[in-house]
Design a protein around this nucleic acid. Structure first.
Lengths: 233, 233
DNA sequence: AGCCGATGTCTTCGGTTGATGACAAAGCGC
DNA sequence: GCGCTTTGTCATCAACCGAAGACATCGGCT
């Protein structure tokens, strides 16, 4: 236990990958901001790839070329790093030029969420939400301006909110199925093929008025669920 | 630590819930089959609710009213219990009367996967797939007859396989978004409202030919049911 | 009755994970 | 040169998890 036998000249430059970036900043070998960015990037990729639980802070640190303990120092902990990565992604998304075409948004989202993507956003919308209600609200606040609102604007019409989220859920499901692989046709199709098949769906989502001849359509979104009583299983 | 002071008359009837089922089989106080079923049911619910990682065998045992160690005894381990729960679900799904209408299938699937559902199938199609290739193949073999094939038949037409899986991915995404809650409009909508909005999408999925210049396929109705290939254990 | 397999209960082990704090080196103003 | 703050490294720790096995009890069979 006691490491007092050898004087051990510290631990210089062994911790992790040298992170040999193209950064010309030789002057600052210790750059807190660069470390933060590296952690955010690695976290985004790993959270997307494996989900929150299976992405360990050790793996994140290794990919970032940084000691995992710095996660605690800079962000407070793993969960806060997750939130920060999400917020960072949302900020990037918001900086991109807005497009009002559902197809274009679909293409962009799929490119971001598809295999090889590095966006934890997809997980944030489908994985089990955090238990803390405050953080769930925070999640919603992060997702809205960068992801939900653009889709809502592109959908337009009545019930835009619901249909925009349906649009997101569709891409969500496709991305999830693709990364999972059990649905082999979806997993093996090219992205272009996928988008072609998705085309009519997007049109239906954008154009179709939700209520045409609803017999008892209540105008408000009444969350009353009729007793299912389905003896399914 | 050392529990050697008191003689402790064994551990009679404390382990877990008494599992006071309505089972009239008073003759057998120890029923391996009932225990298996209880474990399968609890596992299905918890795997669906929390995902594979966060559903601990201790929690599963507690919900089933059974000692967690029996999971190892009866199924071999947590992962095999997962596979067994999936296969059990698939068997149930296969027993239900087949319907050839996409809307009907959507309604049924949503009822099964939606909140309060107890089906790990949704997770199996979206969560990170197991690392072992054999088990991934097994997963596919379980999902095909009970879930994928019926959808494929209902979709029909060209590229039925891809579009059927797209259909499943759509419902998958909707269910995931609903249980996650961050997409609040989808999460708060009633199931009926959801199905109404989904309607046009399903029509687009069923009707739209993938390529504009393709003549509509002749009524190629080949209702050949593939061999059962029962993998249920 | 007495044996013995089937079924159930409890304890414990090794491994992993996130977190924490002591320590070391680097930068920087004086 | 010196001392302080910042930045990075390392060694643990406590908690949790899945698995395994020792032990107890039941129930049928001869």
């Amino acid at each position: 236990m006691s490491a007092e036998s050898a004087p051990r000249p510290g631990a210089r430059g062994h911790g992790a990958e040298p992170a040999s970036g193209a950064a010309p900043r030789r002057g600052r070998r210790r750059d807190a901001e660069a470390t933060r960015r590296a952690l955010l990037e690695a976290a985004g990729a790993l959270f997307d790839e494996r989900g929150f639980d299976r992405a360990t802070i050790r793996d994140i640190g290794e990919r970032a070329g940084v000691d995992p303990a710095l996660i605690a120092r800079y962000f407070g902990g793993k969960e806060q790093l997750y939130i920060a990565a999400l917020a960072d992604e949302g900020r990037i998304a918001r900086r991109q030029p807005q497009v009002a075409d559902l197809h274009a948004i679909a293409e962009r989202l799929l490119a971001r969420w598809d295999r090889g993507g590095t966006s934890p956003v997809r997980r944030a919308l489908s994985d089990p939400a955090p238990a803390d209600p405050d953080q769930r609200a925070l999640l919603r606040r992060i997702m809205r301006p960068g992801v939900i609102d653009p889709a809502k604007e592109a959908v337009g019409g009545e019930e835009a909110a619901l249909r925009a989220e349906l649009f997101l859920a569709l891409l969500l499901g496709v991305s999830a199925a693709r990364s999972n692989g059990t649905l082999s046709a979806v997993a093996n199709a090219s992205r272009a093929e996928l988008l072609r098949q998705l085309g009519p769906l997007l049109d239906a989502l954008a154009d179709a008025p939700p209520r045409a001849d609803a017999p008892d359509a209540p105008p408000a979104d009444a969350p009353d669920v009729p007793p299912p009583a389905d003896a399914g299983g």
